[in-house]
Simulated assay, not measured.
Amino acid sequence: MKTTTAPILECRGIIQRYGRLTAVDDLSLAVPPGICFGLLGPNGAGKTTLIEILEDIIRPTAGEVFYLGKPRTSLFRQQIGIMFQQTALLAFMTVQETLATFHKLFDKAYDLEELIRLCHLDDIRKQLNDKISGGQRQRLLLALALINQPELLFLDEPSTGLDPQARRNLWDIVHQVRSQGKTIILTTHYMDEAQHLCDIVSIMDHGRIIATGSPQQLIARHTRGINITLPPDAAEAITSNAIFQVNRLADRVVLQVTDLNRAIQALLEASVDLTHMSVQSPTLETVFLNLTGRKLRE
């Protein structure tokens, strides 16, 4: 007999209205336990509103949220961990003092030394909060989100503003947390981050979920062909051509092609400089652009 695992977090028929604006439109989703679940969406998609509803920060206009198969109680906020995109830390406290203060707030708290090792904070434990780097600050905020040993962890744009080395370091820690059986709900604008970390991704737009699946499944369903990336000044030399679809972004031009040889020949005939050309298979970013459009949203 086949059995299914009940979701750790589920929402049904969520609606959130602000006057005439419907930010979340009759949305339902279920998050299986023990995975990294990514929620992606362009600006204005309703993603932030939905996350705040799931975190129990705001109450929806309509609909229900269930934790471990039951309606949430007042204990829910004590049982989850949240790494907010922006969190104010007291400048006059050290990293060690900050962790120790939060540690005292919970009956079931992470072993402090183990947490410091997990989040690579040993070298900065005596530094003041306002003297640490961006990557060190994000690792501290992650440690604070984990301090109550939550089974469900929300990570809201955890690597925004970090350099590539700090991002990779943070990803390694997230992988370790995931390997402990924790469930992670991740929001990010970095498609490579979602593709690297997430087991399942839902893409949201106009208040609704428009696609869900593993990154590999979404790429297989919603992309085709190969991407050729060129500098933005190449756009002037590229005209309409059935060989490729042209996506003009702020910092580059992306061509979607099915026949690489024919596409390159067409570019050479158009006298396009291919010195800085890169060629890659479709990614989650391709899926995101295909589903939500290429126009920048404010």
Rank of each mutant, 00 (worst) to 15 (best):
V201P: 05
F288C: 08
S202P: 04
A220R: 12
Q216H: 13
H196V: 10
T229L: 12
I51R: 06
P158A: 10
R117E: 15
G213T: 02
L21K: 11
G41A: 09
V272I: 13
P164K: 11
A194P: 13
M83A: 07
Y18W: 07
V287T: 08
I58W: 02
L197S: 10
A237H: 10
R72F: 10
G161D: 13
N247I: 06
C11A: 13
H175F: 14
I82S: 02
L142G: 02
R20I: 09
K47N: 03
L39T: 01
G13C: 10
S28P: 04
G41D: 04
R137E: 08
V279S: 03
L255I: 00
L170V: 13
L267H: 07
T22K: 11
T229S: 13
H103Q: 12
S271P: 00
D26T: 04
L152Q: 03
F106Q: 04
G293P: 00
R297M: 00
V257T: 15
H175K: 12
H120D: 15
V174M: 12
I147T: 04
V177P: 04
F102I: 00
I35N: 05
I184R: 08
L186H: 04
E193M: 10
G38Q: 09
L29R: 04
I53S: 03
V246P: 02
N227H: 02
L115K: 04
D25G: 03
G225N: 01
S214C: 08
Q127D: 10
C198H: 06
G225I: 00
L153C: 07
T5S: 12
P33L: 02
I219W: 01
F288E: 05
D259V: 01
V24T: 05
F37G: 02
A235N: 11
E64Q: 15
R125P: 07
G34V: 03
A266V: 08
S179A: 15
P231A: 02
